[in-house]
Design a protein around this nucleic acid. Structure first.
Lengths: 240, 240
DNA sequence: TCAATTCAACCTGTCCGACAGGTTTTATCG
DNA sequence: CGATAAAACCTGTCGGACAGGTTGAATTGA
């Protein structure tokens, strides 16, 4: 069987690299490759498509940057596991080029995470529920180390997305971690008092308990409240 | 000023290309470049980073594939407008490698689009409302041409996302268009009768009217109903 | 016969040089 | 001063080269 599919022109954008990218993705689909499966070598594709190795390399590298494939020196390229790397870069690019603002990020996160909370409450395993609760408690335990609180917070939200059992939600939530790391300290500092900060931590714990208890409504509502209060804090800090 | 930032190692992954990608994105951020602004030439970056032009080219090409920059022969690379291209490739990759299934896509779309409906009802301009209604009516007008119905359907959903005035929603909705094009005909055929197909079109029109009327609750509920019925149709077709 | 070892073939990462066009800037000319 | 022509610049693609890392097959030894 040919390495490339019939309609390899699908991605053709005038340049050969786009064509090569199309050929590679078509190869993955035509042969029903899954994560870990090996792709043809650069030289093979180069001959197959009648283009130079440089072109194939740029195509491979592009797919690797988007995390669709894994590259390793000496080894052949392999199909990659889904990953939020590409989307993270995209979101951060949007924020840094002033095409996306923080409120818009918050709205998307709130929308998505109300759903992941609901699903997590319905689908979480006991182990996941314990991990989520663990992250929530860690925020309170490490109260004086803002960095640790932040990392637990991020892990908390990501673990809820995982427990939703929908990888797309995990990707989206993961994609916002980069920008969240940059705005989180602002939100933390903008809380008027330690009491407010403790209150925020308490919401996390209550949310974890709702998920543990399998109460989707409560989980969803707590997540909404969490985002509303965070937005309020950010607003108070002048981010709007 | 130096072309590259201090912490250009942020993206270093052992290979020079990752370093170059980091340097380029850092350059964009450090100089606060926006869409359309020009980037240094390959030769300049090559010298600046002390790597070969090939390395810089692979970095540029990767960023272009992710639609963070635009490449044009003869011209310098420019910062790109946000685009769902990268996310589309990612989603399609996930579906084709069996890491994502159609139900998961539907859940995400339902979650996101209930929100875009709400926001569109609140924020749409009159022109946008008219365009949305136009797409809905076009579905009924071209009832016998499934392809045209599909394209109007996709345009309808995307326009609602645009009217939400949050580019992230537009990106996400746009990212699902590729897979939607592949499953849409199945949903259309799986409707038991033309009456059901007309009913689906009617929901679209009612939704457009709710957005035109500025009724967020109604818009959101209609969108939810639309997705629930589509999922039901797909289920009937054995996609589950 | 079989397992361990060695080696040849293969593969990727990076570099260099070259040339065909397309684009921008500069200098020249009317 | 404005139009035009030339020079400088830039990207797309190609080919070749070499340093390592990886793999699988042949060889060797038990």
């Amino acid at each position: 069987m040919s390495v490339v599919s019939v309609d390899e022109e699908q991605f053709a954008g005038g340049n050969l690299v786009s064509t090569a990218i199309g050929a590679i993705t078509q190869h993955i689909r035509a042969n029903e490759l899954g994560p870990g499966d090996r792709l043809p070598s650069e030289a093979t594709l180069s001959k197959e498509l009648s283009v130079s190795r440089s072109v194939v390399r740029e195509a491979f590298r592009s797919l690797a940057t988007m995390r669709l494939i894994d590259l390793n020196v000496g080894k052949r390229a392999t199909v990659a596991q889904l990953d939020h790397g590409a989307m993270s870069l995209m979101i951060e690019h949007g924020v840094h080029t002033a095409q996306i603002n923080i409120n818009q990020v918050y709205d998307v996160r709130r929308t998505i995470e109300m759903r992941t909370s609901t699903l997590a409450a319905l689908r979480r395993t006991d182990a996941e529920a314990r991990i989520i609760l663990g992250h929530a408690k860690a925020m309170e335990t490490n109260f004086d180390d803002a960095d640790k609180v932040m990392e637990s917070d991020l892990a908390f939200h990501l673990e809820i997305a995982r427990a939703s059992k929908n990888p797309i939600f995990s990707i989206i939530v993961g994609a916002f971690q980069g920008v969240s790391r940059q705005t989180w300290p602002i939100g933390w500092r903008s809380r008027a008092s330690d009491a407010e900060r403790h209150a925020m931590n308490r919401i996390h714990i209550e949310l974890a308990e709702a998920i543990l208890a399998g109460d989707p409504q409560a989980a969803s509502q707590l997540m909404a409240r969490h985002f509303d209060e965070s937005a309020k804090a950010l607003l108070a800090a002048g981010i709007a």
